[in-house]
Design a protein around this nucleic acid. Structure first.
Length: 453
RNA sequence: GGAGGAGUGGCCGAGUGGUCGAUGGCGGCGGACUUGAAAUCCGUUGAACCCUUACGGGUUCCAAGGGUUCGAAUCCCUUCUCCUCCGCCA
């Protein structure tokens, strides 16, 4: 959630951002409803805010009068006994009237606040000035390509996709997954199990070397934590599985469990940056994604991931530097895995609500003959920290204590196992159907190659 | 799952209807003393929101949410968390 003061002082910046991101806060205000849809959205948000403030003032004023009344009541005790009852009577009546009014206004103010924040929390984060503007895949900016794409034609090999490779080597069982759990669920088998564990161990090791505190996180989290991080836990197009009769969800990423760890706390500036790494399972409904890039392990309902998370001081200098650091770690990991990739600066329309800027790593996937997203790192500035109430106390200036500020929060994928497996199988496949294991994994797998069989 | 107990400011801990944002201690910060430090003494010490250019002012917060009352940290209800004991269990 953004600072509500931005709505009051910089409505036009909000309007521009809604247009850049093509985000529709109210379903009836879209480009189809008129060119001024974004301006009308801002006006409507401002009206909701004004309504809340009006009720807030009324409530404050009423409580002030209640406090006055209470003070007056206290002084009654100093009057002669005979006069006290008569003096109390009007005060009690006034008190009752104030109480009734306060209750009514309070309830209305609550409602108005919920209405405002409901809408306001759908307004996305501001956008980095250098992020490309646009809503389509072509609008993303490719920053660089790293690694050499294998020339399979020169090797005289017709590259297979990861599913063909995996099935031939008996590394996955989607049929059993479908039987036991459902579509897009799978079992890993044989060497794939060890490869999966090796990837986790490798990524965890890199994270540790870079100073991240290691965690295995819960796979469930409360609705309120998801909302704080800008996820929508329930509703039609949610990507999140929820647990019936509880306020819990299966997490789609350890970003949730790591980011939520410090909710409601105030840190000292010296503690920053806080660097956390988390290993968790990730569950995604993939609502509306059927048929799209749906073959094999590329888009599945459950996978394991090592996630990086950082809390920094609340300046763009700090968070941008940390963002670059997270990206560098992701690149280090995939260079270690000997996978060619490119780095993408994600366009405004595809950032998702919380991100101020986002970089994706896309690995070359010979089976599909194109690049596919493999990691992602986002600078979410204070957008998530505001709802989660994660703050820090800046170091004193001239001996004066500073007011707490919201931390900036960033996340990045170290390794998402399902997609890393896709990239490894496809890039390291051999003519005989075997797959060479990247050197960095061999001490964990205990073998250099899988197959041939 | 059953039975008990407890949740107060950064921490410990008083407070059982109005004078309590809350005694006291510890910690922190500032100052005095000291060559410096320790010890001692004095002062100070939370957060959120709203109004205000500022100075300043107002409202709220004693786990959370409801209720009783003119008035709640204090009484009642619900929920959550923690602790102890019993049972069950990888």
């Amino acid at each position: 959630m953004l600072d509500i003061k931005l709505l009051r002082d910089q409505g036009d910046a909000i309007r521009q951002n809604l247009e850049d991101r093509n985000v529709h806060v109210f379903p009836e205000l879209t480009p189809e409803s008129g060119a001024d849809w974004a301006a009308r959205t801002v006006e409507r948000l401002q009206a909701l805010d004004a309504r809340y403030l009006e009720l807030l003032h009324d409530g404050d004023e009423t409580r002030r009068k209640q406090n006055e009344n209470t003070t007056a009541m206290k002084s009654v005790g100093k009057l002669p006994k005979a006069e006290q009852a008569a003096a109390r009577k009007p005060l009690i009546e006034a008190g009752r009237a104030l109480r009734d009014h306060e209750r009514e206004v309070h309830a209305q103010a609550e409602e108005a606040l919920v209405a405002r924040d409901d809408a306001w929390s759908r307004v996305p984060n501001l956008t980095h000035p250098e992020s490309p503007r646009g809503h389509t895949d072509e609008d993303h900016r490719e920053l660089r390509r790293v690694g050499t794409i294998r020339d399979f034609a020169a090797e005289g090999i017709e590259p297979k996709d990861h599913l063909d490779i995996a099935e031939a080597l008996e590394l996955v069982d989607f049929a059993a997954g479908a039987r036991v759990t459902g579509q897009k669920h799978y079992y890993l088998k044989n060497e794939a199990v060890l490869l999966d564990l090796a990837l986790q161990r490798y990524a965890i090791g890199v994270a540790q070397r870079h100073g991240f505190t290691l965690h295995v996180t819960p796979d469930l989290a409360r609705d309120s934590i998801l909302q704080g991080l800008g996820f929508n836990p329930r509703g039609e197009s949610t990507q999140v599985y929820t647990i019936e009769n509880s306020d819990l969800c299966l997490v789609g990423t350890a970003e949730i469990t790591l980011g939520g760890m410090l909710a409601d706390s105030i840190l000292e500036e010296e503690q920053l940056p806080v660097l956390l790494a988390g290993l968790s399972h990730c569950f995604r409904t993939e609502a509306g994604a059927h048929g799209k890039e749906s073959r094999g392990l590329y888009r599945v309902h459950q996978f394991t991931k090592v996630e990086l998370f950082a809390f920094t001081a609340g300046t763009l200098e700090e968070s941008s530097a940390m963002h670059a650091r997270l990206l560098a770690i992701e690149e280090e990991i995939f260079q270690g895995l000997e996978i060619p990739y490119r780095v993408i600066d994600i366009a405004s329309g595809d950032l998702g609500g919380p991100a101020y800027r986002k970089f994706d790593l896309e690995a070359w996937m010979p089976g599909r003959g194109c690049f596919g997203e493999i990691t992602s790192t986002s600078d979410c500035t204070d957008y998530q920290a505001r709802r989660l109430k994660i703050r820090y106390r800046p170091t004193p200036v001239d001996g004066k204590k500073q007011k707490p500020r919201h931390v900036f929060m960033l996340n990045g994928t170290a390794v998402a196992n399902s997609r890393a497996l896709v990239a490894i199988l496809e890039n390291h496949q051999q003519r005989d159907g075997s797959v060479v294991v990247p050197k960095v994994l061999r001490s964990w797998t205990g073998f250099d190659a899988i197959g041939p069989r």
